[in-house]
Amino acid sequence: MTQRLSREELPRLYAAIAQVADLFLPVKRAGKTNFALWNTQTEVDLDTLKTAKSPKDLFFPQCEPLYTCDWREGNLTVTAQALAERDFVVFGVRGCDLRGLDVLDRVFLSDPVDSFYAARREHGTVIAFACREPEESCFCRTFGVDCAEPGGDVTVWLTDGTLYWRANTPKGQALTDRLDLLGKTDDADEQRLAAEQTAAREIIDRLPYANLFLDGWNGDATEARFASPLWEKLYRPCLACGACTFACPTCQCYDIRDYDTGNGVQRFRCWDSCMYSDFTMMAHGNNRTSQMQRFRQRFMHKLVYFPANNDGMYSCVGCGRCVEQCPSGLNIVKVIKAFEKEAKK
């Protein structure tokens, strides 16, 4: 059942949700919009289509402690970090980023379950936000994401004057039940909503990347793609930074490190990037010594290795952040197109 709320009432909605749980939503701070905890002072920004960082760090933080070791009376003691216990709501997750969470679920919720991630997933309610004005870097449809009908525990649509709200899951319904400011919709609302969705999908048809297809990319393509000479040409501008991996909603490689606090050792994990030269470095050497190999690994993982292990699901969601943020103008679209062009030759 779809419900509605006038756009002016949004601050009241935020306050009402914040009564129930911690509310995270896109907030503009120092010129950039990222997900942050809401309070009455925050500058909520729903106009920016994509947050600079994906919301993955609400479930898989860039840095999180795992446990602490200390020596008590000569005995080594390991104290595990407590799991998330507070409920939270993430408002405004786009369809692509939501798919990103599905990808992360495949990694972290598969056996053996990562309990830190699982606890956050359990306590988090995701309110997905339908796109109205997709942008030039978007290519979510290539991966089967419908940005006009993104799913999530709750889906919201925002038109010029109205917010439409629909609970999709028991978790979403539970949240909805605790909010009393949502109103009923009528037929006119339904029609308006349908028209909005149609309009958004029509824009998708006209995007520069509307005709991006994944022919030839799948779990069986390892040999042909791996050995291609194209990589040697594609990787050249790569600076070996981690901008693409950290912006990406699906990249999940991490590092585990120790920090000596002076009265114990804190072990934490933090995001890592397969683009870094020391990513696979170990005592007896490095099995990926060139940036070409590392560059190849990233895209092979997203488009070949991951689908091979996950029933054909790609580890890219078409959010286009790499398109916008790579300092050298590299991105997954270029890789896909280069192979497409090669195949046509």
């Binding site: 590092d255 490190r257 933090c270 890592d272 870094y276």
Partner: peptide, 30 residues
């Protein structure tokens, strides 16, 4: 987000091994 783009793009940031890489410092991390 410590993506190191600023460091890697900088023409004069060209040390073979940066102090922020590797395992030598426990406080200087990824």
């Amino acid at each position: 987000i410590r993506c190191n783009a600023c460091r890697n793009v900088c023409p004069v940031c060209n040390c073979r091994k940066c102090v922020f890489d590797g395992n030598a410092f426990d406080s200087v991390q990824k």
